[in-house]
Design a protein around this nucleic acid. Structure first.
Length: 863
RNA sequence: GCGGACGUGGCGGAACUGGUAGACGCGCAGCGUUGAGGUCGCUGUCCUCGCAAGAGGGUGGAAGUUCGAGUCUUCUCGUCCGCACCA
């Protein structure tokens, strides 16, 4: 592609030639290859590795630009930086491609990796490529199989039955995303529920630890911590027995508000509660209601907004603390079987859902907690439940007690009566890791009729995926393979079957960060290397992984620690989550989505189709997605503007954690700046001084101002980079660039000052736009690489200005500004400030009542 | 419904512990360069009034604390994200 950006003026920076040349140079010099070096501090920066889906997208470009900036900056600051890249290579899309295009998942994946590796390399990212690996390689997953066996032996893995979505036509298990409106996405047939025996990892054993530790991860964004806390969902409460009237058995409920027990007016069971099922057998009405409940779906938003509904079972329970008082038992659509005991007691006065339910079925609403300032005698609940703390009323022995005290008293009472126990519940469930798929790591288990599940002996690992598979028959290719699963039991030697399930692909991504420390060792994780590099100092990736990947990795690291693989329990010391890339959307008059490249600006700023000139409707900026076609291909951008321009734009407009609007104007702006920099070096208005020359003695005042700006910029950019305020760092470099460009060259020492200024700009901007930085560095006469040059130092004395501009206010309103010596006293400030015309005018004949003076900032006259 | 985040020019965004709101960039306008377009350079650009000096208004809205609020407090409106009825 002969880029249009390359035509015209000779002064135009030739990025094509330059970027390729420097990438080759870095490779030749092995600039980014690292080994353990005890003499320097280590720094491990990692970006979430990609799934090789085919081509890189803008999200990747942003993610890896952010990581590369951090890596290059830390290198310049003297750290020994580990910055690796690999491929999260197992997954469903490879199997879909196999079905659609008749290509082996293995081959499809490898082709994609080759394409994407080339794309990443064209970005000039400072990876140690010698550490690259793909998780679909047996060299990788062999160790994962060993870990799983160790987990079994450590009591961290077990089997149990659980439900899956089953497509009866394709004879395959469907992921949630493959179920659309209750039907298989390809077959379109009604999905069934099927119970399968599957493997689980005991993440719940670490629920408390994962919860408590996440609170201490202060290098993580607050919102990710909150999301994990909510996901784990610890709640402390009581399990209470309610005796069923006229029956021998009882219902157990879980509650966090046992103090409101005296306000109970009903009990409710989940539709999946064993008692509900049992009763449904004899009650067609209840059975129909349960079917109705299932139809609601499982999403919270759907259920929340749905009307509360129940079915009166006719059963009654006796109130545990009010003998002779009986409550109705309902089956209700808002009670979850998965949480607590699958049954609740309803206290309408103090729970909004219970209140809605009670109003609908005309159940009593008895307030038992009165807010602090309410009149306990007359306090009533109408449309809104009172969920806060307060003083107990209508509660027998709890009357007059405060919430905390009441909770304690009722707990003691129920425990004494042996009808209640203190209990802690978690929302977190164990991690199901079995997948009924081909393109994943085989689970190293042999199922024997006599011996049960037996682990594959270590000397037979890895259990490799067979390559001679067929996707023609419905179902899992591993199960259809003629010979693969037929083996002898390692224990009794009788014929047995291999496990045909493979691991959840979150398994691979739960330890890859450790594998990068010793990526090619046949022994797997080398302790010395892992101990040296772990934990990851800075992890960078999308917010979409806030819960699952990050939580699984934290658990997995703990499990590895328990089995002696690693010495840390938290894998990621600091986490940065990047925002999404957005772009305007375009639709033609038929409502068909158009790619940005199919749209151009017509007259009057309206958008028109590039094909036929018809009017195009511009929609607001949304997350780039294939479905809305508002995508821009990074390869096209890099081909047209170069990697540096793309990198610069990715960092310059928005802070990393916020969404970024991709605009043509924005990328043009970045491109202009790059060319301006290049011109300032290749055709300098001021002759460039000799490199390394000492400062001339008699710098003029203007030159001293520039000199101070250079030092201030070094300081400020460093601060901004440390705090990930990359957009500000770039703004500051541009400010300095503007100042240097405005120099006239007449002053004594100007060539020296200009040269020092340009060198500083190059060194500060090098982690962001490394190729042109090298090109300019060379142009200045350096034989070294700027990539291997230390971060510039600043002189603290240069940060302080001689004078500051101070605002003069009258009654808090700015009436003028004066330039004052830095740190001058109030008297001096008043002497100059109060004589300003507008200030005097504003004061007029009024009497000065008070003067507030903040040194170097403000002088405020109150009249 | 619950939880979280965010509201600043035409746009993306700056503004340290409360102390000159709008850095930097984009866009736009005028001028210069150019055969023309683009590039490039210069100047201007929060809004209103004014030739100008200047005056008044201004950080979604309302109130409050303060000499002083984009920043702190309360209420309110709107947008976005997440979801698991968490008892």
């Amino acid at each position: 592609m002969g880029s249009k950006r390359q035509e015209g003026s000779m002064t135009r920076y030739n990025f094509k030639e330059s970027e390729a040349r420097w990438q080759k140079k870095w490779q030749e010099k092995k600039s980014f290859e690292v080994s353990e070096d005890k003499t320097r501090p280590k720094y491990y920066v990692l970006e979430m590795f990609p799934y090789p889906s085919g081509r890189i997208h803008m999200g990747h470009v942003r993610n890896y630009t952010l990581g590369d900036l951090v890596a290059r900056y830390k290198r310049a600051k003297g750290f020994n930086v580990l910055h690796p890249m690999g491929w999260d290579a197992f997954g469903l899309p490879a199997e879909n491609a196999a079905l659609a295009n008749n290509i082996a998942p293995d081959e499809w994946t490898k082709q994609n990796i080759d394409t994407m590796r080339n794309q990443l390399k064209s970005m000039g990212l400072s990876y140690d490529w010698t550490r690259e690996f793909a998780t679909c390689s047996p060299d990788y997953y062999a160790h994962e199989q060993k870990m799983f066996i160790d987990f079994i032996n450590a009591g961290l893995a077990y089997r149990k039955k659980s439900w899956v979505n089953w497509d009866p036509q394709e004879k395959t298990v469907l992921a949630n995303e493959q179920v659309i409106d209750g039907r298989g996405w390809r077959s379109g047939v009604q999905v069934e529920k099927k119970e399968l025996t599957q493997w689980f990892l005991k993440i719940t054993e670490y629920a408390d630890d994962l919860l408590n530790s996440v609170k201490a991860l202060d290098g993580w964004p607050e919102r990710v911590r909150v999301m994990q806390e909510n996901w784990i969902g610890r709640s402390e409460g009581m399990r209470i027995k309610f005796e069923l009237a006229g029956r021998e058995d009882y219902i157990e409920v879980f509650t966090t508000r046992a103090d409101t027990l005296f306000g109970a007016s009903f009990c409710a069971l989940s539709a999946h509660h064993p008692l509900s099922r049992q009763l449904a057998e004899k009650s067609p009405g209840l059975a129909a209601f349960i079917v109705e409940c299932d139809r609601l779906g499982t999403s919270e938003a759907a259920i929340e907004t749905a009307e509360k509904q129940g079915f009166d079972t006719g059963l009654r329970v006796e109130h545990p603390l009010k003998k002779g008082s009986f409550l109705p038992v309902y089956v209700a659509n808002f009670v979850l079987m998965e949480y607590g005991t699958g049954a609740i007691f309803g206290c309408p006065a103090h729970d909004q859902r219970d209140l809605d339910f009670a109003r609908k079925y005309d159940l009593s609403v008895v307030p038992v907690v009165a807010p602090k300032h309410a009149d306990a005698e007359t306090f009533e609940v109408f449309a809104e439940a009172y969920t806060g703390e307060g003083v107990h009323i209508n509660s027998g022995f709890l009357d007059g007690k405060k919430t905390v005290e009441a909770l304690d008293l009722v707990k003691k009472k129920l425990e004494a009566l042996k009808i209640g126990t203190h209990e802690i519940n978690y929302r977190l469930r164990d991690w199901g890791i079995s997948r009924q798929r081909y393109w994943g790591c085989p689970i190293p288990i042999i199922n024997c009729d006599g011996c049960g599940p037996v682990t594959v002996p270590e000397d037979q690992l890895p259990v490799k995926l067979p390559e001679d598979i067929s996707f023609e028959k419905a179902g899992n290719p591993l199960k259809n393979h003629p010979t693969w699963q037929h083996v002898k039991c390692p224990v009794c030697k009788k014929p047995a079957f291999r496990e045909t399930d493979t691991f959840d692909t979150f398994f691979e991504s739960s330890w890859y960060f450790a594998r990068f420390c010793s990526p090619h060792s046949s022994r797997g994780l080398e302790k010395d290397a892992v101990d040296h590099w772990m934990p990851v100092d800075q992890y960078i990736g999308g917010i979409e992984h806030a819960v699952l990947h990050l939580l699984y990795s934290r658990f997995f690291t703990r499990a590895l620690q328990r089995c002696g693989y690693v010495n840390v329990k938290e894998p990621f010391e600091n986490l940065m989550t990047q925002g999404m890339i957005c772009h305007e959307t375009y639709q033609n008059s038929d409502g068909v989505w158009l790619l940005p490249e199919e749209v151009k600006k017509g007259k009057h700023g309206k958008f028109i189709s590039a094909h036929d000139g018809s009017i195009v409707k511009k929609g607001r900026s949304e997350k780039m997605s294939k479905s809305k076609k508002n995508v821009v291909d990074p390869e096209v951008i890099i081909g047209e503007y170069g990697a540096d321009t793309a990198r610069l734009f990715m960092l310059s407009d928005s802070p990393p954690d916020r969404d970024l609007d991709w605009t043509e104007a924005g990328i043009e702006g970045a491109w202009r700046y790059i060319n301006r920099l290049w011109r300032m070096v290749s055709e300098p208005k001021i002759p460039l001084g000799a490199k390394g020359a000492l400062a001339p003695k008699n710098l003029t005042k203007d030159m001293k101002t520039i000199q101070r700006a250079v030092h201030q910029t070094i300081y400020n950019v460093g601060e901004d980079l440390e705090k990930f305020r990359f957009n500000k760092a770039i703004a500051r470099v541009r400010e300095l660039t503007n100042k240097l460009d405005a120099m006239t060259g007449e002053d004594v020492g100007a060539p020296w000052m200009y040269t020092v200024g340009i060198e500083t700009v190059i060194r500060l901007i090098a982690p962001i736009i490394p190729h042109i930085a090298e090109e300019m560095w060379q142009e200045l006469g350096h034989a070294t690489l700027v990539t291997e040059t230390a971060w510039p130092d600043y002189d603290k004395l240069m940060l302080v200005e001689n004078t500051v501009v101070v605002g003069i206010q009258v009654n808090g309103k700015i009436r003028g500004t004066v330039e004052l010596p830095t740190d001058c006293d109030q008297a001096t400030a008043e002497k100059i400030g109060l004589t300003l015309g507008p200030v005097m005018a504003a004061i007029g004949a009024k009497k000065i009542r008070k003067i507030i003076f903040v040194a170097n900032r403000i002088l405020n006259v109150v009249v």
